[in-house]
Amino acid sequence: MPRVLWFPAALALALVLLPVAGLLVRTDYARLPELITSPASLNALRLSLVTALLSTVLCVLLGVPLAVVLARAGGRAVRLLRAVVLLPLVLPPVVGGLALLFLLGRNGFLGYLLDVVAGVRVPFTTAAVVVAQTFVAMPFLVVSLEGALRGAGDRFERVAATLGARPWTVFRRVTVPLLLPALGSGAVLSFARALGEFGATITFAGSLEGVTRTLPVEIYQRAETDVDSAVALALLLIVVAVVVIAVARPRALEGVRS
C-alpha cells in the first residue's frame, strides 16, 4: 500500500467522524437522560426498531430471489432491470415517498384498488413506514448479494445439480448457505438504511406518534423547535446503529464457517 494513501484516507475519516464529534460536543448531557427517555422518544425508538426490523425481513424475503434472478438470468432485459433496481439509491427519498403515494395512495392505482376491494388504506399507517423503508433499503441488499453471487459464479450450483439435487434443493442447500456472509452484511446495511430512513417516510406515511413517527421523523420535528432534544435523539439513533452493526457484522462475516 502506497504511504501517500494515508493522507486522503485520514481526510475521509475526518469527514465522517468530525461531524459526529460535533454532535457529541453539542449534546446537553445534563438533559440527555430526560430527553431520550421521554414517552415520545421511547415510542419513536420502539417504532423505528420494529419497522426497520420488519423491512429488513421484507428486504431479505424479496431481495434474495431478486438478486438470484438478476445474477443468474441472462438477456438484455435483465441488464436493464439491474439498473432499475438501483433507482431508489438515486431518487431523493422524498421523491420516492411521492412515488409510493402515487402508487399506494388513495388515488394511486394500486391504493385505489386496495381501498375499494379490501378496504385497506396504506398511507398514514405503520405498514406505510415499512413499505417506505423497504423501498429505500432493498437496493443495498440486492446489490451486495448480486455482487457476491456473480463473484462466486454458479460452479457449486452446477456440481450440486450433477449430484442429483433439484433446483429448489440447490437453492436451499447450496446457493443460500454460500450467500450467508453477503446476506448478513447486506441485511445489516438494509437495516441501517431503514433505521435512518426519513424522507420517504414523512412523505408517504406522515408523522404521528406511535404510528408513523419514527426516530428520524421525531428528530426532524424536534430540530425545528428544540435543537438540544433533536441532538439527544440523534445520539440515540447513532448508538443504536453502531450497536447493530457491531453485533451483527462480525457474525455475518463468519456465516460461512458457522
Partner: peptide
C-alpha cells in the same frame, strides 16, 4: 384524531391536494 401531524403547513396542504 389526526391521521398525521405534519412538520409544516405546506405538507398538510399537499396531503389534501393529493387526496390522501
Amino acid at each position: 384524531r389526526p391521521a398525521s401531524e405534519e412538520q409544516n403547513v405546506k405538507a398538510v396542504l399537499t396531503k389534501v391536494r393529493t387526496g390522501e
